[in-house]
Nucleic acid binder design. Structure first.
Lengths: 192, 192
DNA sequence: GTTAAATGATTGAACGTTCATTCAGTCGAT
DNA sequence: ATCGACTGAATGAACGTTCAATCATTTAAC
């Protein structure tokens, strides 16, 4: 029983790496299977088809993100601190898990991220939305739609992590550190 | 001669629509051909292979973006005005050309956007970078790396346009308008 | 405790489809 | 008459998916 869940997760994880590297269509089921150390037929014990595998990866990924970020949020702290912690947690998580970052970035803009999927309950999105709702209720940030806020902040974190990944050499100079972008965003969204 | 360029552009345009709708791998060459009103073999008169077609669309797209945004920039105006005009031009352009927005968003995160491609000269990226360099030289915006700034601003515009596309109904309420996000970003990046 | 049956995961060759690409022949302009 | 674009059927490789056979583990019977 346990090993079944393990194998499912094992397939997801090895598919995650490959998709991140080669794109959705650059990694055939056979490659995922080989990478996971199983036969290609086995994939179909755990997933209805390849699309379901991709969605399965997505569901795993958002669960992991939510877990990491929410564990580090202390809702008794001042909201400003919570915001910076949120930003840092998300950044850290992506940097610790570059293939999740790569996958998620690709997935969000892909046709896999269909309207139907977006309608389904999503613990990570719910968490992020209610996080920013808190900030608004507390009067700490501007009265923007929390959904917009969360998309905006998450997009920016994604972007920064991507920049760090790609431009590591060029940017290290004497410029304002990339981490300071969080201040820039905070200045933009804080109330007053 | 002219009709050859026309046909190339015609193929690019009809591929653009299809890719935006179905994703890179959801639109076979045969479909592109049919949509463009040519035989599939004809595609190969204009493009070496399907990948080259995708890259061709990308090159067309960034050229159009650059044209639209730079035409509306008056570098004699105060930089703050120029920033708002930049933001508005880019937003307008994407809203006037939703399939370009959809394509570009997908493309940027896809494996097609390879390191090699990123190294190639790109008039739009150069334009955006030097735009923000201007702002820094004029002392109007913070001393961030202009490459970072342009990625950041472009990402945010992209994101806002995407939100407008998807959430038209939900968001129209009484919340601060999405267009105000530009102020939020300006407040964040302006000097002082 | 041993043996036998049952269950269900696993395998990988085989299948059928899809699709990028080719090319021999056609058409149209000059 | 020549040249080059155009056509679209043909090709063959790639890939998702299936399934008969195998294997491992659990259950049942004695």
């Amino acid at each position: 029983m346990d090993s079944l869940l393990d194998k499912r997760k094992c397939i997801i994880k090895s598919a995650l790496d490959l998709v991140q590297e080669h794109g959705f269509h650059g990694c055939p089921v056979s490659m995922v299977a080989k990478n996971a150390g199983v036969a290609s037929g086995t994939i179909y014990t755990y997933f209805e088809n390849k699309d379901a595998l991709i969605i399965g990866i997505y569901e795993y990924v958002v669960e992991e993100i939510k877990k990491y970020v929410s564990e580090r949020d202390d809702n008794l702290s001042p909201f400003k601190d919570r915001f910076y912690t949120y930003w840092k947690s998300l950044t850290d998580f992506y940097e610790l898990n570059p293939s999740i970052h790569g996958f998620y970035d690709q997935f969000l803009k892909s046709p896999f991220n269909s309207e139907d999927l977006q309608k389904k309950p999503n613990a990570w999105h719910d968490y992020a939305n209610s996080f920013f709702e808190d900030g608004i209720k507390l009067g700490e940030i501007k009265e923007l739609n929390p959904i917009v806020l969360s998309i905006l902040v998450n997009t920016n974190v994604n972007s920064i992590v991507g920049i760090k990944k790609n431009f590591k050499k060029k940017l290290a100079r004497n410029n304002m550190s990339l981490d300071e972008i969080s201040h820039l965003i905070w200045d933009g969204i804080k109330a007053k």
